[in-house]
Design a protein around this nucleic acid. Structure first.
Length: 372
DNA sequence: GTTCTAGAAC
DNA sequence: GTTCTAGAAC
């Protein structure tokens, strides 16, 4: 399948998906992570034309957008080609366009489902492979001016049986509309508590990387590693504590989907190994309804800030999916030890070499030495 | 879950 | 003085 991506020249943001013929509006928004007020929230519109392998850029904002050194002018348009540098505003925020892969139909329903994830997972700029590796955005809600982006990502999703289930979500809702109606208030018109927000996120197509009739996989809103996703079943299951034997088929399916998706992630560069992942559950989760974390073990993320974050993924607080399944299989349930909450307060320890490290910044520096 | 910030640690 | 953490508030 051919894909097109708007890639940051300074690694400011993750690649932005540009579906064929679809206008995507970006500027000072979460997609680009540009906070500079000289940049309009809707600075440029971007439209990829796959047949010509060019991207049409239109300057919507007042301050200058340029391709190479040529300014487009207010409401001016120009074509951006692979190899050229686009500066979003005032000769800053370089981006370029990457077309990847020839069009190829998915070989099976399973592969089709996986293809949807890979379509949303482009390689970073450093990858010469041109194959998927990074994910496009982390917002739970469409940023300003990016409705077309949400729609375009929906188009990228091909679902089992070839049906666009993003528009016809049999287990729950019509995604975009559903969000508008539910957020930010709950059923009784009261503000929804933060711990309930996963339910809304499940229906947000802009963060979905996979869905089928049993589960949906979404980008974690505050990723603690380069790749951090949540696998959520449509069927309501409160937490690991309520799991019983009849949940086993679902748990296995969640595990299988997570494994399949994580295997598709490509290495950062040609010389590096593909990322390793852990699949598992927080013993005492903050967020309502069961969710499996799928997290790459680089822990390279500005969102990883506290001892609690670290220990929740590197101590017994994080229970591997396989362990959960085995406990349910053998003991009929998952038993959480009484002192589990205390694990979050443990001294910081490198998950690779087990060295104790005094502060989070030093830990992050140390992680760099492991070349994860 | 995050953000904010007082005060501890350096 | 600055950095960093932990707990309150949301």
């Amino acid at each position: 399948m051919q894909t097109c991506w708007l890639v940051s020249g300074d690694s400011r943001h993750e690649p932005i998906a540009l579906p064929d013929g679809t206008t995507v509006v970006v500027g000072r928004c979460r997609l680009t992570r540009i906070k500079d007020t000289r940049c309009s929230r809707q600075q440029i519109s971007v439209q990829a034309m796959y047949s010509k392998r060019v991207v049409l850029i239109k300057q919507l904002g007042v301050n200058p957008t340029s391709i190479e050194t040529v300014e487009l002018g207010h409401h001016g348009e120009a074509e951006l080609r692979p190899g050229q540098t686009l500066h979003v505003v005032n000769a800053s925020y370089p981006m370029h366009v990457e077309f990847r892969g020839p069009a190829s139909p998915p070989p099976s329903t399973l592969a089709s489902a996986s293809a949807s994830a890979s379509a949303l997972a482009p390689a970073p700029t450093t990858s010469p492979s041109g194959r998927p590796s990074h994910l496009p955005k982390r917002a739970w809600h469409s940023p300003s001016g990016s409705d077309s982006q949400a729609g375009s990502i929906r188009k990228f999703l091909k679902f089992v049986g070839g049906k666009d289930r993003a528009k016809d979500n049999s287990p729950s809702v019509s995604p975009t509309k559903g969000n508008a109606q539910k957020s930010p208030t709950g059923q009784r018109g009261q503000p929804a508590h933060w711990s309930q927000s996963l339910r809304d996120a499940m229906d947000d197509p802009s963060v979905q990387i996979f869905r089928d009739d049993q589960v949906v996989v979404i980008l974690d809103k505050f990723p603690k590693a380069r790749h951090h996703w949540l696998v959520l079943p449509w069927r309501f299951v409160a937490n690991v504590g309520v799991l019983r034997a009849d949940h086993l088929p679902l748990l296995r399916h969640m595990h299988d989907v997570a494994e399949r998706l994580s295997r598709q992630v490509q290495p950062l560069g040609a010389a590096t190994a593909p990322p390793t992942f852990r699949l598992g559950y927080h013993a005492i989760p903050s967020m309502s309804r069961i969710h499996m974390h799928v997290i790459s073990q680089d822990f390279d993320s500005p969102r990883l800030k506290t001892k609690k974050h670290w220990n929740s993924f590197t101590t017994g607080y994080f229970i591997d999916s396989e362990v959960v399944m085995r406990m349910v299989e053998e003991d009929g349930r998952v038993v959480i030890p009484e002192d589990t909450a205390e694990l979050l307060k443990k001294p910081l320890q490198c998950h690779m070499c087990h060295r104790e490290i005094s502060t989070i910044p030093k830990l992050k520096e140390h992680l760099g030495t492991h070349k994860l």
